[in-house]
Nucleic acid binder design. Structure first.
Length: 455
RNA sequence: GUGGCUAUAGUUUAACGGUAGAACAGCGGGUUGUGGUCCCGCUGGCGAGGGUUCGACUCCCUCUAGCCACCCCA
């Protein structure tokens, strides 16, 4: 006889059990040291590009009032409808762990009177986002995004710059990406187009899936985005939004395309690209990895213009555009391509010690080398020389300094070349100078080798 | 949120209705102060709870988590 267990009974049992297991909350991840190097590298790249293009770093809180997203992102969007980590706090406030970065930035723009700053206000961010989705590879519940936001200008150059910057960063990381782009015009253009589109789909009603039928009243534009193969021919035949853009919108879009061409950004016009967030107007785009987009279901990043958002949130009418890129997705692509972050944390030299006296001295020696700008490693907690050299070997240092009783008495150190095992005795006082000399020579030799290889 | 697949040491994995082997990593040795190769040893595991059974890691159920597709997005 098999007894059925209910979820409640089971939860109770697990809690009572002597060995409860603690594991990560679903869709979250510990970022271990190995992985950190990727995050730091990406952060540095983004910061460098942001700096040189005049974007300043902004950090907004991880919690916001729920309404900010309901109004900003849009009530009908998937994010707001089913993906928000929302809760009521002890003071009865409805709060949400931020699912995206643009609405908070727009909020900050209004709240801090950035209208009075020189326009456009150019900001960038790098932080955690949370969405309650079903996890999958490249799709976490807590994940990281970096993004650029430029508020206060409707110049199409802004759109192009935003796209260019994200493209540039990917390029610098060694990734080949392409940009899918479209324009969804202003609200008026869109409303007009929606009507036409709905009329069109109504004529094909019998061929639509249930899913598509639902979208027909809710958000007809998103039918265009469908991957349903049965729908593809219908979608292909559908009227295109480009034909319903106002003159201003069309002109804007053509200019964006023109600038991107000038900037040498490979763009693919994709008339079916709409986006899941309500605040977009005119330009929308997505960044995809270079390969056929079918192999990779998920975009690396996306963004667009959001001319109405600031006003919608209670600010003055402020045209703006932005982009957000998923850091974890970039990292998994980097790994796929075997691209590893350059490690500038690679130590040059290892200090090994033997005996109590030497151990004490080695601390000073370590500091002396360190403050001279040499990257030093140690293993002070280990005793045997063997295990220390083993560690030195694993760290791939070029030299090891050995400091033992003998050396202490003579006021010298032993310098061991880890490649060929040649050791020499050096005056303790000259260590820094000698080590520097050797490291510089190494660099010169390497540079020459690279030159020769190129020739 | 819907459907499906999976779950064995830190990692990658093997086997079996009678209670687990390996590789890599880690730690320690192969004479006392010398690494990268080699040899030896040690540490460490059946995701959780329950059921069936004389006995389950193996069968069943539930939960949890991961993965895949959908939905959608970063």
């Amino acid at each position: 006889m098999i007894k059925k267990n209910t979820k409640e009974e089971n939860t109770e049992r697990v809690e009572k059990s002597k060995n409860p297991t603690f594991q990560l909350v679903r869709g979250t991840k510990d970022i271990l040291p190995d992985e950190q190097s990727y995050f730091l590298w990406i952060f540095d790249q983004v910061r460098a590009v942001a700096n040189s293009y005049g974007f300043s770093l902004i950090e907004t809180p991880i919690i916001e009032k729920t309404n900010l997203f309901v109004r900003g992102v849009g009530k009908q969007t998937d994010i707001v409808e089913k993906e928000m980590f929302s809760f009521t706090d002890q003071g009865n406030e409805n709060l949400t762990l931020r699912p995206e970065g643009t609405a908070p930035v727009a909020r900050a723009y209004i709240e801090h009177g950035m209208v009075t700053w020189p326009q456009p206000v150019k900001l960038w961010y790098f932080g955690k986002m949370l969405r309650h989705e079903r996890p999958q590879a490249g799709r976490l519940r807590e994940f990281h995004q970096f993004g650029f936001e430029s508020l206060g200008s409707d110049d199409p150059m802004i759109d192009a710059q935003i796209i260019f910057l994200s493209y540039k960063i990917m390029k610098q990381l060694g990734l080949d990406v392409s940009v899918a782009i479209n324009s969804i015009g202003t609200e008026e253009c869109r409303n007009q187009y929606k009507k036409v589109l709905v009329d069109y789909f109504r004529t094909k009603r019998s061929e639509l899936s249930d899913e598509a039928k639902k979208l027909l009243t809710k958000n007809p534009l998103r039918i265009l985005d469908s991957k349903d193969e049965n729908l593809l021919p219908i979608i292909e035949q559908a009227p295109q939004i480009f034909d319903y853009l106002s003159n201003a919108s069309r002109e804007h879009f053509l200019k964006v395309m023109d600038y991107l061409d000038e900037l040498d950004v490979p763009v693919i016009l994709k008339p079916t690209l709409v986006r899941g967030l309500d605040y977009y107007t005119k330009t929308v785009f997505e960044i995809w990895s270079g390969e056929e987009e079918t192999s990779r279901q998920s975009a690396l990043g996306g963004g667009g213009r959001y001319d109405d958002l600031v006003e919608l949130l209670g600010g003055r009418p402020t045209p703006a555009a932005g982009v957000a890129v998923g850091v974890e997705r970039v990292i998994s692509l980097l790994k796929e391509k075997n691209i590893t972050p350059p490690s500038d944390y690679q130590p040059d030299i290892f200090v090994a010690q033997l005996g109590e006296e030497a151990k004490r001295k080695s601390l000073l020696l370590f500091e002396e080398l360190r403050s001279a700008g040499i990257k030093v490693a140690e293993s002070l907690s280990k005793e045997g020389l063997k295990s220390q050299l083993e560690k030195a070997d694993k760290l791939k240092v070029k030299y090891a300094i050995i400091l033992g009783q003998k050396e202490i008495l003579d006021g010298t150190v032993m310098l061991r070349d880890m490649e060929n095992g040649i050791q020499e005795v050096i005056d303790m006082k000259k260590v820094v100078v000698e080590v520097k000399k050797r490291l510089e020579k190494q660099i010169r030799v390497q540079a020459e080798q690279i030159k020769e290889e190129k020739v």
